[in-house]
């Protein structure tokens, strides 16, 4: 019971201090809108292409929303030593890191719902497979958050976390089938696509909206879960190795 009080308050503090601040709320709304608009202008397509664009916009909104926040909630707090306060509290490290990331996961899920809500006013989404879409959004948010965590605990400075995040984020936009089909990628890039978690998340989203998929949804979910566990485990190893020296 006591450790859950700590868990809840760490999450709540991060939500109040970081995620619910006006710049982040506006980012969560403007960012998906900008991406959607950009692709409409570029492709010159009509409203019918929204369902093709939506999985990519949802995925990119989650990816950027989650990974950009971890540099502040983790790296910045470590840098200004307030993270030490958490490390010295009687909370298991696993639970502490889950508490620190749960705010980002919720923020990622909320970011994902913005483009969906906008699309719902424009096109008919009643055919979407929501039972696959919603768990996929949660898993993409978790895996993106843990990717951000992995980077945040591997560096010492906030700018390093931002820089390294970009090394992962921007290639993922092009390699994970968000807007460009993996099938059309050069053969030598395809293995790289299959090694990135977002490929599997976007595959489920695409299946939810358009019924198109590269892999069976069960495989996509399985791979995403494995990525989540692996990234979280590697992050914990890094915290123990680098921060509790």
């Amino acid at each position: 019971m006591k450790i859950w009080i700590a868990f809840w308050n760490i999450m709540l503090k991060d939500m109040r201090t970081y995620y619910l601040k006006p710049p982040n709320v506006s980012w969560g709304i403007i960012f998906p809108l900008a991406w959607t608009g950009m692709f409409f202008i570029k492709t010159g397509s009509g409203l019918e292409s929204i369902l093709t664009l939506l999985p990519g916009v949802v995925a990119v909104s989650i990816l950027f929303g989650t990974t950009s926040m971890l540099a502040v909630t983790v790296t910045f707090e470590k840098k200004n030593r307030s993270f030490e306060r958490l490390l010295m509290a009687p909370i298991p490290l696993e639970l502490l890191m889950l508490a620190k990331t749960s705010g980002a996961i919720l923020f990622g899920v909320a970011n994902a719902l913005v483009p969906v809500a906008i699309a719902a006013f424009i096109v008919n989404l009643s055919q979407a497979a929501w039972s696959a879409f919603l768990p996929a959004v949660v898993l993409i948010a978790v895996v993106s958050t843990f990717l951000g965590l992995f980077i945040a605990v591997a560096v010492s400075e906030v700018f390093e976390a931002q820089t390294f995040s970009n090394f992962f984020r921007f290639p993922m936009i092009f390699l994970c089938g968000l807007f460009f089909p993996i099938a059309k990628l050069p053969v030598f890039l395809k293995p790289l696509s299959y090694a990135l978690p977002l490929t599997y998340g976007v595959d489920i989203l695409r299946w939810s909206f358009a019924g198109q998929n590269l892999f069976p949804p069960a495989l996509d979910f399985g791979v995403l879960v494995i990525f989540c566990v692996l990234l979280f485990w590697l992050s914990l190893i890094n915290v123990r190795k680098r921060w509790i020296v």
Binding site: K2, A6, N9, I10, K13, T17, R85, A89, P90, I91
Partner: peptide, 16 residues
């Protein structure tokens, strides 16, 4: 960014 009161309450919550 937290007030003095909120800082103390947060630290107390860390100990359950």
């Amino acid at each position: 960014e937290l007030t003095g009161f909120d800082n103390l309450c947060f630290c107390a919550a860390l100990y359950g």
